[in-house]
């Protein structure tokens, strides 16, 4: 049912060598995304690490049409790309809005809400590295509780905004949560979204060695740990039907979730986090995970 890594198309749209940090998972995700769209796409990209990955004039790291846009306006710009393509009679190009968590959950949420409410024919993909990385790791609405950033020196006090639920509340027909370290999960979800129309929202966890303080070689391990702890959940909601996918689906079956303590211990950004905070997050997480599992089981019937 799901694509195996060896079955991914071999055409590469992300060229060898780009300006992201060593060990960045953004490039892994972007490779899968562009493969799933077969490069027949145009991207709207706001200010973010993705801009940096894209390259500096007059060179580019990615061989797909790429339009840089003002930071708050990704979804509106994507709406404009879609409208312009319709108006000029081109229906063979998928419009992909791709923004960071800050550009999505904070400054861009108004434009995104407007586009989703209008049902714009776009795929909106938020890559979530859980802070404003491009400007030096400041907190965002998607930064997890307890994480230290350059504007939460003692650890963030609040939970992350749940963008997927916000998008579900807009009545968006396809909402998915994935992780850049599971390229086949990313690929399958983007490929499915490509076959649908209207607004499609995909949230992609994107482990970031520089901002989270872990070794570049550990990117995939950290991303997997997030899924194994049930913090990042791989799922999709198609016309209201919820389904866990990949490793999260297996985890629901096995019930062998790892602890949040193990996850935070592996990253410098949680250094010094109080035991009580870890306990609070674990309780919050247990409840949330149970909700996902029961929704998965209920909708499977």
């Amino acid at each position: 049912m799901s694509t195996r890594i060896t079955d991914l198309p071999s055409t590469e749209f992300v060229l060898p060598g780009n300006r992201a940090c060593a060990g960045c998972s953004l490039g892994i995700g972007l490779r899968a995304i562009t493969k799933a769209l077969d490069g027949k796409m145009v991207m709207a990209v706001p200010a973010s690490c993705l801009t940096v990955l894209g390259g500096m004039y007059p060179t580019s790291s990615v061989a797909v049409p790429w339009v840089n846009v003002a930071f708050p306006s990704t979804a509106a710009a994507a709406s404009g790309l879609a409208a312009g393509l319709r108006a000029t009679g081109r229906d063979d190009i998928t419009v992909l809005a791709m923004a960071g968590d800050g550009g999505t959950a904070d400054i861009g949420i108004q434009a995104l809400s407007g586009a989703a409410e209008r049902g714009e024919d776009i795929i909106y993909l938020c890559y979530d590295n859980e802070a404003y990385m491009n400007t030096g790791t400041q907190r965002s609405g998607a930064t997890p509780q307890g994480a230290r950033t350059t504007t939460t020196w003692t650890g963030k006090g609040e939970h992350a905004k749940d963008m997927c639920r916000i998008m579900e509340a807009h009545g968006v027909g396809y909402v998915a949560s994935t992780s850049a370290v599971f390229p086949t999960d990313v690929y399958d979800k983007v490929a499915k979204a490509r076959g649908l129309s209207g607004t499609r929202y995909i949230h992609m966890n994107t482990p970031c060695p520089s901002g989270w303080s872990f070794e570049p070689k550990d990117t995939v391990a950290i991303g997997k740990l997030a899924v194994d702890a049930g913090l990042v959940v791989l799922y999709e909601v198609e016309d209201g039907r919820f389904r866990l996918t990949g490793r999260s689906a297996s985890l629901a079956k096995s019930g062998r979730r790892k602890t949040i303590a193990e996850y935070v211990a592996a990253q410098g950004r949680f250094r010094g986090i109080a035991d009580e905070t870890v306990a609070v997050v674990q309780r919050w997480l247990d409840e949330r995970w149970a909700g996902f599992v029961s929704r998965h089981e209920a909708d499977a019937e």
Binding site: V67, A70, G80, G84, Q110
Partner: peptide, 27 residues
């Protein structure tokens, strides 16, 4: 015969025009 995008703000209005113009539409 045109696309009319009922945006939620002026910031988005011009964002739409910028993107549509980039694609080749008169806006």
């Amino acid at each position: 015969s045109a696309e009319f995008v009922t945006v939620e703000s002026e910031h988005s209005a011009l964002a739409v025009c910028i993107a549509a113009s980039t694609v080749g539409a008169r806006v």
